[in-house]
Amino acid sequence: MANPHDVVLKDVFFSYTHDPILENVNLTIDHGDFASIVGPNGSGKSTLLKLLLGLLKPDTGEIRIFGKNPEKSRLRIGYMPQYAHLDTKFPVSVMDVVLMGRLGHSFGGRYSEEDRRAAQIALDEIKLADQNKRFFSELSGGQRQRVLIARALCCEPELLLLDEPTTNIDPEVQEALFEILKKLNERMTILLVSHDLGFVSQVVKSVICVNRCVVVHPTSEINGEIIKDIYGGDMCMIRHDHRCSEGGHQYD
């Protein structure tokens, strides 16, 4: 039963139509890892995330989360979608949204005092405690994104999946977000999708490059050559202070 890996993908193939989106994906994510999924638009990043959540099923191959199939492990995963697919005019308060992370505990969906406390703690953690009385429609893009992170945290997850947490966020807010995520990483595994490589800097321990195939690099390995491979063109790269992953090199 003891499984050291939180996430294991074995020979996974996936396609929406007959064009393959993901081919022969083999991937393991260790407990406590902080990984970023990068790749150009349409490379299958979000698809990979949806496969991990069990919202999509692989054509062939096997996906295990905490040693079980994704649907059975869902309640242990916190997921932050891109807010762009939500209706920003929807009449809900910030607290209403965060509390959604506590659903699934009772049949009718009543919230207990404890649920409210957990929601407040999640808002504290994401530095939005003073905004709990406000409404989702009044918030800025960055605040909405953080509310959705708080909602994911409210699930008390062991694995946090974030889909493009940096879109529409100012650089300085991004910096604050790094710090928050870094702290969260002490108690949970984090996997985020990002198409800006800037995010893959000081905090991320390993980088999962997706472009139909999946290759994992420790952060230290990222250089112009690899970026060219992923994005298929020359790109300007700004070097950050790189750290070596403890996970080491995982592709062969």
């Binding site: 959540l53 919202l55 869902r74 309640l75 995963i77 997921y79 979608p81 939500l86 209706d87 929807f90 809900v92 209403d96 949204v97 509390l99 959604m100 992370g101 659903l103 699934g104 009718g108 969906g109 009543r110 919230y111 909602r151 699930c155």
Partner: peptide, 17 residues
Amino acid sequence: NTILAVCFDDEFASLRG
């Protein structure tokens, strides 16, 4: 609460079982 969640974000609601 359940219907609110389903109307706001059905995908997330599914993930909460």
